[in-house]
Design a protein around this nucleic acid. Structure first.
Length: 293
DNA sequence: ACCCAGGCGGGCG
DNA sequence: CGCCCGCATGGG
């Protein structure tokens, strides 16, 4: 397998902060053995294994990405980390009040990542009624138990792939429990079979938000919230606004005097306030900021 | 010990 | 439809 180093000496991108992006828990697959400052982060990315070396203040990175050519490798990396997004334009639209403004300042450069659709599906099924630390642990167990080793042409073992649905469906549900999935093991087993035989996630890329979500919700274990997560972080659909316990709590606290709101009403509120083209980004800043209040 | 976590499916009214 | 419940598991 050929691996390309996108830029040997790293590259700087305006309004990009890798540390904030990783820590905001979007790529749930990253391996936590890293050290920001001058560390290496590495994690499976679909059939790829990305190694990103953080240079200096984490605003400059280099990566090795599997691809047929260097150009594609660079493009993949750019897409994966949302590096084509125009942050000044996005900030202008979502900077509606003091709370969001402070979040933008504090987490300046945090991007919405666009992960492999199946990877996002599995990770966010795993996320339900769970906490981030443990989700990452379980996902790591999955990669270790069900992924395959990736060896570069130069013989260096780069890491392991994220198991495809086809690979995963061959294992018994009990193996998923053993890896820590708990009651979600049944969902994973069914989802793997379904996404291999009935629903091609890779053919949903050009669907509208409504259609995409409708299709995703036919997967066992994927409800309203998880479908929004997959739409946003597996397809880059900015119209998705996942409302988990943190986002709900934060929105209610910041905009409704702490009064409980219905999910549906919060969705409407978000679309009116931040707009269909930007609300996904607003959600990510609210989520990350709200968790760290 | 008790409570919570990037919720969902199923059963009931 | 909406509401309510159980659910595996580990960390605070």
């Amino acid at each position: 397998m050929k691996y390309y180093t996108t830029t040997p000496n790293g590259f700087k991108i305006k309004d990009f902060d890798l540390a904030h992006t990783i820590e905001s828990a979007q790529p749930l697959t990253f391996f936590a053995d890293y050290n920001f400052g001058e560390g290496i982060i590495e994690y499976p990315s679909g059939r790829n294994f990305i190694k990103a070396t953080i240079l200096g203040n984490s605003k400059s990175v280099q990566a090795r990405v599997d691809a047929t050519d260097l150009d594609t490798a660079k493009k993949d990396f750019m897409i994966r980390f949302g590096l084509n997004d125009n942050m000044q334009d996005i900030y202008k639209h979502i900077d509606t009040d003091k709370f969001v403004h402070a979040a933008i300042e504090k987490y300046h450069g945090m991007r919405v990542t666009v992960n492999d659709p199946w990877e996002a599906t599995l990770c966010f099924i795993m996320s339900q009624y769970n906490n981030i630390k443990r989700i990452r642990l379980i996902v790591k167990n999955f990669v270790k138990a069900f992924g395959n080793e990736i060896v570069a042409d130069d013989g260096i073992i780069l890491g392991r792939t994220f198991p495809t649905s086809e690979e995963l469906m061959k294992f018994p549900e009990s193996d998923f429990r053993a890896a820590g999935a708990g009651f979600r093991a049944k969902y994973i087993k069914e989802a793997a079979e379904y996404c291999t035989n009935n629903l091609d996630l890779y053919k949903l890329k050009n669907k509208s938000y409504d259609k995409l979500k409708e299709e995703l919700m036919t997967i066992t274990g994927v409800g309203d919230k998880v479908a929004d997560c997959i739409a946003l972080m597996g397809y880059g659909n900015m119209q998705a606004f996942p409302i988990d316990v943190w986002v709900k709590r934060t929105l209610e606290g910041m905009y409704f005097n702490g009064k409980p709101q219905k999910i549906k009403d919060l969705h409407k509120f978000a679309e009116e306030r931040w707009g269909a083209s930007y609300m996904g980004y607003a959600q990510q800043y609210i989520f990350h900021s709200g968790r760290n209040l």
